[in-house]
Write a protein that binds this DNA or RNA. Structure first.
Lengths: 196, 196, 196, 196
DNA sequence: CATGAATGAGCCTTCATTCAT
DNA sequence: AATGAATGAAGGCTCATTCAT
């Protein structure tokens, strides 16, 4: 995560920047490098040296989450039940999307700043594609949606949750509900009709 | 739509403002009153006289669409088949959402500027609520989603379509596909797939 | 006060404008002709036709007060005791200054818009001059202040009262206190030393 | 006055801003940060960096004067004759008020921007209070005015001088005359005039 | 006479980015 | 490497006044 071979103090500064940015994102404040500089007590120049744009910083925040999702993706790829594999992976994705505000911003962005972000997103897309393709091959999934729809739909659910938002709503639960509804529509044979 | 009894030239200016705003919104440019003034060739003050905030202008752009949706809503309320009523109404909604960029902005806004906008949104929400409640009463819809989820989900679909967007995608078709998937998940026991 | 030979409706408009302006001034709102127009329901042009500047309107508001003061001035000029004449006149002046917000604005202005205002102010200045000169001739007043100081000092007292202002202060009482202090300083022989 | 440990060029800019502001205030021009920026040739942002509001800049202009007054206040507090102490202090105050246009603005403001300004004003108020209380205790002052009246009255005198203003008037002399008149009224039994 | 739409200069403020120190 | 001052375009908005209807 933190680039190696960085002078001790430089590394400390970098961590400080990331920590402050994390706080800003968590409290819903728009991420501005000037603002980060002020709150870290560092000079703007220092912040710019570490992160040349706000997007780069945002992607750095999202990185751990993306990596965790990638791990879940790898895990899902080893699962034998193709439906459960897909379902489980996507639930992890939406949960992450609504839990960490840095994620939707990075996920929905058409282009990436950091190579590593691009790589992770590429892997997640390919994992999703594989999982959906397997499910279609096993005929546990209805046609109509393609792998290219997965990312947009996950973003859409995250956005829907945000629109829904009020003080009394459990965002994670709502996200799962929305995904569940969508997956019901995606599934070929529903339990009720699979029983008899 | 255009307030009556306005001086001839004032009405022309107002229309000009709305037309320019329409273009801006269609081309994805953020709607700024100063910008509108510049492009219309009118003074800033003139624009502010007609629309005291950018939101008011945006809502004015969205108004015809909202009214058309309201008409569809009334239509749907007279439909006898509760499932078809809900389905048809929601398809009209998402189609509008992706066809006119002013709509998602207005729909997702937590507060409204123009009384008429508020009224239309209220009506649309109540129509959706009634349609969903009827479908639930007729047991053609699965539990899990409530009337309060409708607006967020429609916004989420519009957002998903936007994330999907590329030069070669048919936005309307994509929106219908997404809604169809969701409705499949919402639907209770469909005769067709329960048989074989 | 209201110019004669004005069409009935024009006169009504004029009165309406003055009434609204009175309210604005009383509530401490800056006097803007646009604002007056909106609150009267009249067009801006109409307001401008009646009062070509905000100052003209302000002077119109102040007029009744100025006339009342002029009456007090004439009264004072008939008084035999030169000290009491001066004292009484000035107390009327400061009381008016703090009671009607239109007055300080007009009194302190170096130039006047309406001829009648200029005339009234001229008369008040001359009355003050005469009263002070008589008091000096009667040696009931100490040298040091001249007639030209009267207007500035009355304005200064009104301003001091305004600076003092808080929710719990009686502006009129404060004004009288301040003037009393000043008059004590102006007076030659104070009661205590005049007795024996 | 100028904060220490500021980069050389930054300090130069700051001084330039203050100098230009000084000129504006001296020539009676309303103090606007944009205007200051234009006249200094600096960017607006630079001016805002140094002084976040026009009030902050105004208070910075007034600061040296306020400090000089505070020094006079301390001096007066060591004076043994309570009357002379009060008199001398107040004469310094009014002289400052009419000599530096930044002072009345700061003095009359109900709230302060810079902590140091607030502190200085607090000290001056308390010095005035002490001096007046001592004079009352020594019975060299008549009742009727309280410490809370001092600031308003000093502002009132400054305002009176400004109303008086014309090309041929010596503002400082006028201010002293007005204060003298007021102090005469404040003073209790003067030996000189009580004798004959 | 009355109207009120139009004007546009001008004020305030923010922010992403550069670059001298 | 680090600093943080400087920049200035850009956006938001108000208001006194004019003039076509």
């Amino acid at each position: 995560m933190t680039p190696p071979s960085l002078r001790r103090d430089a590394a400390r500064n970098r961590d400080r920047i990331v920590a402050v940015a994390r706080d800003l994102v968590d409290e819903g404040t728009p991420l501005q490098l000037n603002d980060v500089a002020r709150r870290t007590g560092l000079g703007v120049g220092t912040v710019y040296r570490h992160f040349s744009t706000a997007e780069a910083l945002m992607e750095t925040l999202a990185e751990p989450c993306l990596e965790a999702l990638a791990a879940h993706g790898e895990q899902a790829l080893t699962e034998t039940d193709p439906w459960r594999a897909l379902e489980s992976f996507l639930h992890h994705v939406v949960e992450a999307q609504v839990s960490d505000a840095s994620l939707p911003a990075v996920t929905a962005a058409p282009t990436d700043t950091l190579p590593h972000t691009a790589e992770l997103k590429r892997f997640l897309r390919s994992a999703g594609t594989t999982l959906l393709d397997r499910a279609r091959a096993a005929e546990v999934v209805r046609p109509g949606l393609t792998p290219a729809d997965l990312v947009p739909l996950m973003c859409g659910i995250a956005y829907a949750v945000q629109v829904h938002s009020g003080p009394t709503v459990d965002r994670v639960a709502t996200a799962h509900r929305y995904l569940t509804a969508l997956l019901e529509g995606l599934r070929a044979y529903r339990p009720s009709s699979a029983k008899p």
